[in-house]
Amino acid sequence: MSVVGIQAGLSVDHLVSEPAGARFSCPGGPALYAALGARLVEGTGIRLTCPLPEADHRFAALADRFGWDRRHCLAVPDVPRVWVLASARGRRIVSLEPPAGTELERGGPAEADDPQPPLPPPAFFEGLDGLVASAPAERPAAVPGTRVGLDPHQALIARDGAAHAVAICTPDTVLLPSRVQLKLLDPDPRRAARDLAARLRVPVVARLDMDGVYVVAGEDTWSVRDRLVSVVETTGAGDSSAGAVVAALAGGAELVEAAAFGVAVARTALADWGHLALTEATPLPRPHPGITTRKES
């Protein structure tokens, strides 16, 4: 069994999806979704480091249900509570707490100057085969040789551009940007992905929502799509896909096969609200049928 570490945050989410409706007080956050996605790659063990809320025992219960190692989690009174608002015009994540007593948002809960959780202890990184680091402000302290999947900090990409990616990458990194993050760098997200891969000299697995995954390794590019996906609600699809990509790489898969695992897990996440479909699914020995891989260059 390979062991994948998850370094990320949790939240309690109010999900509002036009026109489907709403679900309230759902367990969420990148740490939960990345762990659920990684567990769906057969043969993967999970080790968590994240703030674990004492006010909501559902997160600990899910970790214990699946046998995740949560010894390196930090007990906190509560975690952020957010609105996740999705419509045909875009997606917004907004804190439940009105800033400075007003009713106007300041841009969402993930500002560049928001405080970061304490860094994990060195023991967290020992013996990991893979690591998912979501929105890190600095380079993760992974042991050399650990395959690190980095989901960049959106606010820092907006502020610092590609320099943020340069600051957090190592030769063991696979960069896992979203469409939104890439479009902060270039109106064409595929071109942005190619530019990052060339500048950083690391593989890029770009998560492009309905357009699947775009893989860049050196001068080679592939498009990985799912023609059988059915969308109920989108929250968690990107983070769970990132977790699956890293878990597959940690288990010995090649880059494009790992991307196909990511697309397969995204299909599962999209099939129900929030984390529900991910918790009930069975780990996959291989990606789902119906996922196509096309080499573009």
Rank of each mutant, 00 (worst) to 15 (best):
P77V: 12
P99F: 10
L278M: 09
Y33D: 11
A123C: 08
I168Y: 07
A237L: 00
V41Y: 01
P115L: 06
G101S: 09
Q154I: 13
L182V: 00
T49V: 15
A206W: 07
V246E: 01
P285D: 13
L96G: 08
F124P: 13
P171E: 10
E233K: 04
Q154L: 13
I157H: 01
T279V: 14
D160W: 02
I168M: 03
I291V: 10
D13K: 14
D64R: 15
P122G: 02
P30C: 05
W68V: 06
D113F: 04
A86H: 07
D113V: 00
L131G: 06
L52M: 15
G130C: 00
S240H: 07
H153R: 13
E254Y: 01
R159Y: 10
A34F: 03
S25D: 15
V3M: 12
G161N: 03
S95R: 11
L185K: 10
G243R: 13
G145A: 04
R91C: 08
R179P: 00
P203D: 06
R91K: 13
A167T: 05
G21M: 08
G149N: 04
P109K: 03
E97Y: 10
W68R: 10
A142G: 08
T282K: 09
E219A: 14
D239N: 15
E233L: 07
S11C: 14
D188L: 00
L228N: 05
R71T: 14
L10E: 12
E257I: 03
S178K: 02
D13G: 12
S241N: 09
P80K: 02
T170Y: 05
V229L: 01
A31S: 11
G28W: 05
A271F: 01
G9L: 11
G9I: 13
Q154D: 15
L128H: 07
I168N: 06
L270E: 06
P122Q: 02
L284V: 01
L278I: 11
G29H: 06
R92S: 14
R179L: 04
D226S: 12
D272R: 12
V256S: 02
V4W: 01
P109H: 01
I93A: 09
R199M: 13
W83T: 03
